[in-house]
Amino acid sequence: MEDSELVALWRSFDKRLHDSLILNRQNAAAITLIRIKSLLGSMAPMKIFIIAASLMWATFLSIVLYRTYSFASPFFWISIFIHVVTITVVIGIYIYQVVLIYQTDISEPLFKTQYRLARLKSSTLLIARLMFLHAPVWSTFSISERMFENPFWLMIQLSITTIFVILAIWFFVNINYENRSKKWFRYIFRGKEWDPVIQSMEMLKEIEEYQSDDRYR
């Protein structure tokens, strides 16, 4: 089918649509009475709550670290320190997401809005990667020095921590767009809360294709 035929076909559809499409003004007017925030605006309060709660948690742990610096087990101290650093980075990502939410305007060009939204959603995956990366601290913070006196417990502890470290690094490196179709990836990131994240990564790829077209022009 030639271009002109396509346009002619669409034009005839447009004409028939014009003749038969009816606006129910009463129902449309009812929409203007609905008190609701914009969809993006409604996402912000939950993120702000998470930021506030995480800040309180990080502050509490920082005080614990400060107070126990002189006598705490180094395993406990360093594990909690790594946890606080990770939480701080995650707070930073949430702040970035809130900034993106307030910057996004759906009446802006598609490219700009979709790029912001795709960045917003895909940054959630970075949070998941960081959570995996710092998982080994949960196997080390309770190590006591007495454990070193017992080779059996020491071996068990070393094995568990090594497995945690290997898995954490593997997940951090491998959780990415290229692996989205792999079985393990689909198993972890399934469900309606993760589908938009995966879709947003696809959207980022599509936008990058458009950008590269503009760049090489």
């Binding site: 649509l17 038969s20 009816i22 129910n24 129902n27 929409i31």
Partner: peptide, 9 residues
Amino acid sequence: LSADILSLV
């Protein structure tokens, strides 16, 4: 809304 806002004849 129970009814459509836009509908075809």
